[in-house]
Simulated assay, not measured.
Amino acid sequence: MPNQRRASKKQRALEILIRLKRLYPDAPCSLDFANPLQLMVATMLAAQCTDERVNLVTPALFAAYPDVYAFAEANLEDLEGLVKSTGFYRNKAKNIRAACQKIVTEFNGDVPKRMEDLVSLPGIARKTANVVLAHGFGINAGVTVDTHVKRISNLLGLTQHSDPVKIERDLIKLLPQPDWENWSIRLVYHGRAVCKARNPNCGGCTLADLCPSAKAVPEVEAALKRAGAHHQAVGDGR
Rank of each mutant, 00 (worst) to 15 (best):
A223Q: 14
L174S: 01
R19M: 09
V194M: 13
R169Y: 11
L79E: 02
A47S: 14
R151C: 04
K225D: 13
T147E: 10
T159F: 03
G81S: 12
G235N: 12
M1I: 06
Q11K: 12
A227R: 15
Q4E: 13
Y24M: 10
V132M: 09
L158P: 04
P178Y: 07
A208F: 03
S213Q: 12
L121Q: 04
N3R: 11
G123K: 04
V194R: 13
T144I: 01
D170M: 08
E219Y: 04
T159S: 15
F137V: 08
R186Q: 12
R126A: 04
K21Y: 10
P36H: 04
F62A: 03
A129K: 01
K102L: 14
L155D: 06
P212A: 11
L37P: 05
N201H: 15
R22Y: 08
G204W: 10
L210F: 05
K102S: 02
A134M: 08
R90Y: 04
V188F: 04
Q160S: 13
K92C: 10
R5W: 11
A227W: 03
G237K: 06
E106G: 07
K10F: 03
E116I: 13
E77F: 00
H148G: 10
Q160I: 10
A99N: 06
V131C: 11
T50C: 10
A125V: 08
Y89R: 07
L17Y: 09
A99Y: 02
L156D: 01
Q11W: 00
I16L: 13
T105D: 14
S153L: 07
A125K: 14
C202N: 00
I103V: 14
G157Q: 12
C202L: 01
V41A: 00
A46D: 02
S120P: 00
A63F: 06
P2C: 10
N108C: 05
S85D: 09
R192K: 15
S213C: 02
R192H: 14
N199S: 14
K94C: 06
K84E: 09
Y24C: 09
K215V: 06
T43K: 05
K150D: 11
T43Q: 05
F137K: 06
N35H: 10
L158V: 11
L45N: 09
P112K: 03
M1T: 12
F33N: 04
L133R: 01
L187T: 07
K94E: 12
S162K: 15
A47Y: 01
L39A: 10
G191H: 05
E219H: 13
A98S: 11
R226W: 12
L224A: 15
N182F: 05
V165D: 14
K127Y: 03
M115H: 10
N140C: 11
R90I: 08
G191D: 14
A141I: 08
K94A: 12
D163S: 03
L61M: 10
C205I: 02
N130T: 05
L187R: 00
K92R: 11
A129E: 08
N130E: 09
L156R: 00
G136A: 05
M115V: 13
R5C: 04
Q177V: 13
R226H: 12
V41P: 05
L76M: 07
C211I: 06
V143E: 07
S213P: 01
R53T: 15
P212C: 02
A222T: 15
M1W: 04
P200I: 02
P218C: 12
